[in-house]
């Protein structure tokens, strides 16, 4: 039919700009990124094949890389754990049929509006040993007033803990998931005599588990890309305690012009993300419950 042929062409006409953008700005760079790590490249001279040498160097001769890998892994575990835990707890609280729910939700979301550089700058100044909010409060209560960016564990802890303040989107997603749980399930559980704790384990957690998985996956991908906070607050220090993979990649690519070496780091980040996602999906088979699919 003439009309349907026209329709077929039309569909492609409508998505054509996207296909161009996809090819030029996504697929080509992603493909290039997957091979560039095997080349030595400084922008000015043509790329030179070096095989696996960058990867050998990263893992055997580059303590900064190993440190940044360990920092990033620890950040993923602690910050995702803290953020998902805090968001779930807040969503549970907000789901207790509180009055003025919209207002509470807005208030808990508000800190997440300060993002990126402004957030990093705010926390940098808030942790100032003399005039920062945290030490002013600690001093008032007679507590210790440490130099938060002066020691490795404190600097790392600061950057990890501050990520809990931008937990707004996670709360919103959890809350929407909780509100979607059919009320009958709770009523049934109550008739069966289930205590609150049991209702949480037997009804809430299974019903919310797909949302939990989603938040974990997105949270891990997001945490792998940590950049502006350490750049602004500590510049990776002290003693590389907050040197993340992306910050180290940035330095190699744009400060030392070691594009191939930096691309090898990007590939490690890619494999890390892929590995985490696959692990979470596989692991989730044991605890995610999809209502309706048995």
């Amino acid at each position: 039919m003439k009309g349907s042929t026209k329709k077929k062409i039309e569909g492609y006409l409508f998505i054509f700009p996207w296909i161009i953008g996809l090819s030029v700005f996504v697929i080509y760079p992603a493909g290039y990124g997957l091979v560039l790590g095997f080349f030595k490249f400084d922008i000015f001279n043509p790329p030179k094949w070096v095989g696996l040498r960058h990867f050998m160097e990263l893992f055997t001769e580059d303590p900064n890389f190993l440190k940044s890998l360990s920092v990033t892994l620890r950040y993923i575990i602690f910050s995702v754990g803290l953020r998902v835990g805090a968001a779930f707890f807040l969503a549970l609280l907000l789901n207790q049929r509180v009055k003025a729910l919209g207002l509470w939700r807005t208030l808990f979301y508000t800190p997440s509006i300060v993002a990126g550089y402004a957030l990093a700058l705010l926390w940098n100044r808030m942790m100032d040993p003399q005039y920062g909010l945290v030490n002013v409060v600690l001093r008032f209560f007679g507590g210790p007033t440490p130099n938060w960016f002066g020691s490795e564990p404190l600097a790392f802890a600061t950057i990890t803990v501050m990520s809990v303040w931008s937990v707004g989107p996670l709360v919103v997603i959890f809350l929407a998931g909780l509100q979607g749980i059919p009320q009958e399930l709770y009523e049934q559980a109550e008739i069966d005599g289930a205590k609150m704790r049991h209702r949480l384990i037997a009804v809430t957690i299974p019903m919310i588990s797909p949302v939990l998985l989603f938040n974990l996956v997105i949270g891990c991908i997001h945490a792998t890309q940590l950049f502006v906070e350490p750049l602004v607050m500590t510049n990776g220090g002290p003693n590389n305690a907050t040197l993340t993979l992306l910050l180290y990649l940035y330095r190699n690519a744009f400060s030392y012009l070691k594009m191939g070496y930096a691309a090898a780091i990007a590939m490690i980040m890619f494999l890390l993300t892929l590995g985490m996602t696959l692990f979470l999906f596989r692991w989730s088979r044991r605890w995610v419950y999809y209502a309706g699919s048995g």
């Binding site: 080509y28 290039y32 990124g33 560039l36 991908i221 990007a266 980040m269 993300t273």
Partner: peptide, 9 residues
């Protein structure tokens, strides 16, 4: 796709 892989290209 993790954005990191695309930054340099």
């Amino acid at each position: 796709i993790p954005p990191a892989i695309m930054i340099i290209p």
